[in-house]
Design a protein around this nucleic acid. Structure first.
Lengths: 105, 105
DNA sequence: TTGAAACTTTGCCAATTTTCAAAATACAAA
DNA sequence: TTTGTATTTTGAAAATTGGCAAAGTTTCAA
């Protein structure tokens, strides 16, 4: 087994860079909207574009950002490309945020 | 009780903006280093400046970013200002990240 | 009240991000 | 093969970010 237990914070500069890269990918409201939508299943780019209400090229860029840090995976079927969460446990981050925002003091 | 259970993802545009603001604050490796250090207790600005190795004015700005989204609180004692985590449960985000990075497939 | 120490604020610059529009690519159907 | 639909890539502009240095503020001590 690894030397680090659950909840051990990242330690090396590389760890901090890797962690901040994921947070950076999630630091945009439109990308967060996309991740939230994909929590209930895969969607094609056209659907996601309608959801966020921006230019399709912009949405495509946001999807690339999320895919490049390992949050999303994509699969082409015909002319469409379907995006989905690579690991659904990513949504647990939202639980932590809810807890963070909810608890007083 | 509230209408939303634990782990319900954020839904309104304001929710997405609030959530992305927290992720944005955590999207910089130096700020992450600071948060990690504060996980084991409060530190003054001078100590944190030595830790991250940047100009004190830069560190002060990073601390303001983290404080403005509610991650940190500050307390002046004499000429020093001590920063600490406002809610330690924030560190749970790192657990989720570890899980995200660790699980295969 | 003068001075020093600890921070914060401001001004500035380089790098990055966010967005749209236009051009390019991939695929399927006619 | 030509056409049309879906998506990505490229180019460019506006906004934001991250950093340092200098100036300003706060507090305490001499």
């Amino acid at each position: 087994m690894s030397t680090s237990a659950c909840c051990t914070p990242p330690k090396t500069p590389a760890d901090f860079r890797a962690a901040s890269a994921v947070f950076k990918a999630l630091s945009n409201p439109n990308r967060l909207l996309i991740v939230d939508a994909l929590g209930s299943g895969e969607r094609c780019v056209a659907d996601l574009t309608a959801l966020v209400g921006l230019d399709m090229s912009t949405v495509s860029n946001h999807l690339a950002v999320l895919r490049n840090v390992g949050i999303l995976k994509d699969e082409r079927r015909g002319t469409q490309v379907f995006y989905s969460l690579r690991k659904p446990c990513l949504l647990n981050l939202f639980c932590c945020l809810d807890e963070f925002h909810g608890v007083e003091g």
